[in-house]
Amino acid sequence: MDDRHRLTRRSFTMLGTAAFLAPITAAAQPAPGAGDFIGFADFAARCRELSGFDPLPRTLLTRLANRMPEGDRRAVAQRDPIPEPLRKRVLKALYTGVYEPGDGEDGESVRIGYPDALMYAAVDDSINVPTYCGGLPGYWEQKPVLS
């Protein structure tokens, strides 16, 4: 493992609210009207494993689940290896907040999350989500204080 992999893992405090999150237990209890299918808990667990984030933002996860075709959703929830194209689509949706339809799937790319996209959580102790205020005027002059 090179230096780039040796960074300290941080606790995930996206937007600073626990209610925003889907921890292991919460993920097993889908949000009302969302992600309500058999195997959601397995789906969520696989997404946590793939993404490196535990817990995951509940809204992001359920929007992804609801957006995916049934077959793809089941493929993620099962313990079999996930086809590479599907794995990348799932990761891009979770990390960038944009779901891209797969081959043969109708529709265009759609946003399923923005400030809760995991890529922003990966740097949330040092870089703010664009369009949201980063701090007091001139804060950028200093190095960030890392968690």
Binding site: H5, G52, L91
Partner: peptide, 20 residues
């Protein structure tokens, strides 16, 4: 980073490294 095939902890750390 995703297109390179990274997943899990390695992906998360690479996103953090590259972004900073």
């Amino acid at each position: 980073a995703i297109d390179e095939g990274l997943t899990g902890e390695a992906l998360r750390e690479q996103v953090r490294y590259r972004s900073t």
